[in-house]
């Protein structure tokens, strides 16, 4: 063979211990010194302004005319302590709902999205069905969906159909969210350039193999940020299963509030939900930033 010529690589890192007699110039050092000072100053300014804003907010709230009443009904340490274990117990149900519904939503959403992109007249009914499904459940307010499923289904008194509010609530959440997620997946599938599919088919891959190995991996990768976003929403909305009487974190707080007429348990539940969402939100931010970085490769702006 005549072609075995490896070209020298430009732009690879220097070999460790390579003899590069480079000494940073005075100009570079000055530039870096300046950048360091500038970023230190920026951090200081940001910290100070955050502090001032927080202080101002606290002053406004504390000096509000109804503050003493509000503090009693919303910020009562005694009730918070009483509520915490019960609300935490309830929260465990929210977490389990998130895990189970999240998995179901991803699978169902993917199936619907794929059904919508199947080519050919044979699949027309499937495509139409999938389109109708997404249109319906994306338009239907979640709260109405929940009421219909959680309250309406048991009223039918069907033999062999569960009346468990957790199961029914989870079903309703899955129905709505799989419609959202299907649209996210579909947008991802359509964003993969047709030439990718053509390249796959030209290698002899079947339509299915092209979808599985070439189109879907790229579609999913691109859609990770919006998917995580929907999962964060789902996590919050698991609180809505309480309308059927399932004792989740919200319902647990509700029970104590009903007995004590003090609203602190709601605050406890709310804070716990936030605490639960924060890791996921941060993960979303991190993934988004990483994707953006990869896309912006080769440029600082």
């Amino acid at each position: 063979m005549t072609l075995a010529k490896e070209e020298p690589d430009r732009g690879e890192p220097l070999a460790p211990g390579g003899q590069d007699p480079y000494v940073p110039s005075e100009r570079r050092l000055a530039r870096e010194r300046y950048k360091r000072t500038r970023s230190r100053r920026a951090v200081a300014v940001a910290a100070l302004s955050s502090l001032v804003t927080a202080a101002a907010l606290v002053l406004v709230v504390v000096n509000a005319p109804g503050w003493s009443r509000t503090r009693e009904t919303f910020f009562d340490a005694g009730y918070a302590r009483e509520a915490l274990p019960l609300v935490l117990d309830g929260l465990w149900l929210n977490v389990r709902l998130l895990l189970v519904c999240g998995a179901a939503v991803l699978v169902l959403g993917m199936l619907i999205a794929v059904a919508r992109t199947l080519p050919g007249p044979v699949f027309f009914p499937l495509r139409a069905l999938a389109a109708a499904y997404t249109d319906f459940f994306r338009g239907l307010p979640l709260i109405i969906n929940l009421m219909i499923v959680v309250l309406g289904v048991p009223a039918l008194r069907l033999q062999g159909v569960s009346v468990d509010p957790v199961l029914l609530g989870g079903t309703a959440l899955t129905l709505t969210y799989s419609a959202y997620v299907a649209e996210v997946f579909r947008a991802g599938i359509e964003s993969v350039h047709p030439s990718q599919r053509a390249a796959a088919r030209s290698l002899g891959l079947t339509n299915r193999q092209a979808l599985r190995h070439v189109v879907l991996p790229q579609a999913v990768r691109r859609q990770v940020p919006p998917l995580l976003n929907d999962l964060v929403s789902l996590q919050k909305d698991t609180g809505l299963v309480s309308i059927g009487g399932a004792v989740d974190a919200v319902r647990a707080a509700d029970i104590i509030v009903g007995r004590s007429l003090n609203y602190t348990p709601y605050l406890v539940a709310g804070l716990l939900f936030i605490a639960l969402t924060i890791p996921m939100t941060r993960l979303t931010d991190w993934v988004t930033a990483r994707t953006d970085r990869r896309r912006a490769q080769g440029g600082l702006l």
Binding site: S195, A198, A199, R201, L203, G204
Partner: peptide
């Protein structure tokens, strides 16, 4: 298609 190889103008490698 398995018996025919194709190379495209835009490479079309899988990114």
């Amino acid at each position: 298609r398995r018996r025919i190889g194709v190379v495209f103008q835009a490479y079309n490698l899988f990114p």
